[in-house]
Design a protein around this nucleic acid. Structure first.
Lengths: 154, 154
DNA sequence: TATGAAAAATTGATATATAAAGTAAATTTT
DNA sequence: AAAATTTACTTTATATATCAATTTTTCATA
């Protein structure tokens, strides 16, 4: 038995284990998104994408550029355009022209949006806490580290 | 300092840590999906949802019911209907009537689909292996366990 | 064995998403 | 500084997704 073939077998097992992790990540993520979606719809008549954008704006009251939003949320530019459009039409967010760069907009949460999010974020934290009830602090830390490792690649 | 308030503080920190994990899971998942989407589009002119469904059918050659597909992929029923429609029109999958239950369909991968997936799954494994290169076997196992814990809840 | 409840899919309406193309403004190059 | 490139964002086309309603069957049970 040579070293090369042994290495290949080992690496293949590792690759399969990584694939299993990826598939479970997908399932877990979709599961949590489904629960959050239900809560947001039944409790606040809103959607997950709108919540995600508004939560980001809530955490950064000074505002963000469209491109910063799409980078932060890991979604496309055109996507953010549409979701922000709806938030603006609902009076929850506002677009301001930037003097420094006339191509860009500064998107900010409105007072109405802030009041709404003050309440929603508290509930959101509880929903997640319940869904992740079996995840210990140690596991959470390990999980975060793994997620960061994945995103660091290419 | 009473025990109750100490417990509250501790629990709150744990809740915040769990929220951090969730946000990082979302980012990592979207990142990986983005890379896979690019590879599938440029290399095979197909989409991630189609790949996901076809990969599931590839792993279960005897076929699956529509509802089994949607449960397995953690997506809605109507969603699977649309994606399978397109796979069928592309000749990659087929719907068969079930004698045992005339409400249901048995969806199966076709020979054309199998040949295509034989090649795609090998590449898919490599893409994931590269993206997860920093994840050790131990971390992968721990990650899988965490993901299963999350999905077990409600 | 009627018959109301439950299950399996589809359909239609609406909201996301992405990719590619297009517009306008800022930057870099020559 | 004029031209070429890049950047920031929008728009259009297409493909997902979900939800709610509907259709067709099957199941439960009275």
């Amino acid at each position: 038995m040579n070293t090369d073939s042994k290495t290949e077998i080992t690496d293949d097992n590792l690759a399969r284990q990584r694939l299993r992790l990826w598939l479970q990540m997908l399932k877990a993520t979709r599961h949590v998104e489904g629960v959050l979606r239900d809560e947001l719809r039944s409790g606040y008549d809103t959607t997950l994408p709108r919540f995600d954008v508004l939560a980001t704006l809530h955490a950064t009251p000074e505002g963000m550029k469209m491109s910063e939003l799409s980078t932060h949320l890991v979604v496309s530019n055109g996507n953010v355009t549409g979701v922000v459009d709806r938030l603006v039409s609902e009076g929850l967010a506002e677009r301001t022209n930037m003097e420094s760069d006339r191509r860009a907009f500064l998107v900010r949460i409105t007072e109405k949006g802030r009041v709404l999010m003050d309440e929603m974020t508290a509930n959101h934290l509880e929903w997640i806490d319940k869904l992740f009830a079996d995840v210990t602090e140690t596991d959470a830390a390990r999980g975060i580290s793994i997620m960061l490792d994945i995103r660091r690649k290419s």
